[in-house]
Structures are given as C-alpha cells and as structure tokens.
Design a protein around this nucleic acid. Structure first.
Lengths: 116, 116
DNA sequence: CTGTATCCATGATGATACTG
DNA sequence: CAGTATCATCATGGATACAG
C-alpha cells in the first residue's frame, strides 16, 4: 500500500497536536527519567534538574490524563507510589530520539559559531 | 565506530535544548509552511491558520536568530520580502516527520477512545 | 503587502511553606 | 516520602488599530 502524502494543512495540524501533548519544558524530560528507571516521585525530581514539587506534581497529572504515565499506589507502610510509562508512551521514542540527536548537534553547532 | 550511549542527564539536556528552539505553537508550522513554498509574509499567514501578524512577525524574527529562516528584501516596487528556510532548518526534517506521524496516530487514537 | 504599537488575558513556571 | 497550598512572576499569545 502506497504511503499517503499529507497536505500541508494536515502536516501543520498534526505537528500542533504533537506539540500540544509534549508542550512545556518538562513533560519529555519526566518521561525520559521514568523510562530510565526513576519510578518514585523523589527519584524523578532528582533526575530532572531544577523542577519543583509543585510543577512535577502537575505535570505527572497531565501525563496521566494523556495516558502516557501510570501512577500506582502500593499499600505498604509507609505507602509508596510508583510511576511507570505506558506502552503508548514508548511510541514517542523515535521522535524523542530524533530530538535528542538534533539537540546534541545543535549545541555543538552553537559552540562553533559562538565559542565561549 | 560504535555509537555512543548518552547518559540520562545528557538526554534530558539535549531534549530541552531542542524544545527551547522549537517551543511554542507556531515555529514548526511556520517552517513547514515556508518549506512548502509559502515565501511571502501573507502566504505564510494564510498557510498557518489563526496566526496574527504580530505573532508571525515575532516568530519569524526568532527563527532568523536561530538561523533557521532567512529574510530577503527585494528592491522592487513595491518592495517585496521573501522568507526561505536554511539548509540547517532542513536538518529538523527527520524529527518533524516523526512528530507529524505521531500526531496523526494520536488523533486517530483519541477518536477511538473518545469518539465524537 | 509587510509589518509595528498597544493593551490585555491566560497559562506556565517559580519560591516557599506546610501536611499526612 | 509524596505531595498540596499560596502567592508572585513571566512568557506566550490574542485583539485591534495603525504605518510605510
């Protein structure tokens, strides 16, 4: 089956959809952190530099609503909470990998044209 | 040469770099529009739904500063201005393509779980 | 056509303190 | 440990009018 070519209007619409879901400074870094084995609230906060508890709390809720992250409460003493990424979240990986690659290259380029 | 594995700290840093450059609702849609042959201010505005002149003007300046877009003034009568994307801008393509793909799929998924 | 100038609303983020 | 509550600030974006 031939690949369908999207119109420019569709491309713009879909990119904006994606931007909306991952918008802000924190959502992708949080998902990367969780995906790397930081499942506890505190671990995530340590893994994502400079994020405050208030913002982390809110972002986690957003990610839950978008079905990218699952929050599980364990009935231990004391209660522990674990965050994990969903299979759906993993579908972001190709895109995120491209973003990491581009960011790495971009930083190198900036160094060239404007060395510290 | 083996591919270098990035640490989670680096991944987060590079993703945030990228997010910083493409942040906001408009930068990518604008680049897509220009890349699709909309080179005049007015054409870009038509191609990107709902953007105001004020915002478009500001975003184009940001993109110029980031060396993603070039502004050229032609000394005709009346003066015409042409915007084009740079080769560097094209390096965003793999990432943007992934974003388009993901956004398309995401919209389809939302329809399934919450049909209008 | 290609913008600039105001003014304003909203949301995103930050600092800090506090709770179970 | 895992958050919530408040308060403050700032950037983004939108409406509208106007200028060269």
């Amino acid at each position: 089956m031939a690949k369908k070519e999207l119109s420019i209007e569709q491309k713009i619409k879909y990119v904006q959809d994606t931007l909306f879901v991952i918008s802000g400074k924190w959502k992708l870094p949080i998902m990367i952190a969780i995906n790397n084995g930081n499942n506890r609230f505190r671990d995530i906060q340590r893994a994502v530099p400079n994020i405050t508890t208030r913002v982390l709390s809110k972002e986690l809720k957003d990610l839950e609503e978008n079905r990218l992250v699952v929050r599980t409460v364990y009935d231990s003493l004391p209660v522990t909470v674990s965050y994990t990424v969903t299979p759906y979240c993993k579908s972001l990986k190709p895109m995120v990998d491209e973003m990491i690659k581009w960011g790495e290259n971009h930083r190198a380029m900036l160094k060239k044209i404007k060395p510290a």
